[in-house]
Nucleic acid binder design. Structure first.
Lengths: 110, 110
DNA sequence: ATGGTATATAACTGAGGGGGTATGCAATGG
DNA sequence: CCATTGCATACCCCCTCAGTTATATACCAT
């Protein structure tokens, strides 16, 4: 799974909200739609995208569909982030490398 | 800065590639366009978006514009990810909380 | 059977944005 | 000065995709 696809999924606030809501535990389509102010078809469509990207798994219970968050896509983001962490994490080694970077950061943004 | 805006920026492979390229150090528009196979106007447009989101800062040097990667937006992603890390990080505490989650994960995806 | 509930999907529409081409503009080097 | 380089922006087209409405399907209750 391409990490840019993961970013694309999270780029929409609605889908991001679904992911955040599912952190509390599994939920049905109706619950998600109600909690987030989405129409039922729209919630289903977003969940379809999330499902295709591995963000959620589904479990059938009568007519209900219980959606549950899965770790893998977010873990991919975490891995993708790894080579950038030196930029903000304080570490005693590599300190020298950061000094000139800090010097360049003296002029702030617009 | 909204984190979904950060995700939206990274959703495009071209912009993600620019970010990855800038990890090696500052670069000019022409260098980025050449290295990534983008037209110059397109590179400028993407860099404009990256700039508006705080991903990069610019430094003028004659006609050249040196773009440099800034940590803040990626750091925001890192922070956003924090409450999800328990899902894949192995920790001796909280182990009990994860057992039922593992049990639910026994049925695999499609 | 029948009506109601829960969800998925199809068809449609509108807007946003990526990408191209053309142009403007500043700074440089003869 | 004048041509060139480096970059930004304006304008345009087109395609994708979010969101709506309507419908199909499956399951439950009585």
């Amino acid at each position: 799974m391409e990490v840019s696809a993961v970013f694309e999924v999270l780029a929409l606030p609605a889908r991001q909200a679904i992911v955040e809501r599912l952190r509390e535990g599994p939920a049905t389509v109706g619950e998600l739609a109600g909690a987030l102010g989405l129409s039922q078809p729209l919630a289903s469509k977003h969940l379809r995208v999330l499902r295709d990207c591995g963000f959620v798994s589904v479990r059938a219970d009568a007519q209900r569909r219980w959606y549950e968050l899965r770790p893998e896509p977010l873990r991919e983001v975490d891995r993708w982030l790894e080579p950038y962490r030196w930029m903000w994490e304080e570490r005693l080694d590599r300190l020298g490398d950061r000094l000139d970077a800090m010097a360049r950061h003296e002029d702030e943004e617009e």
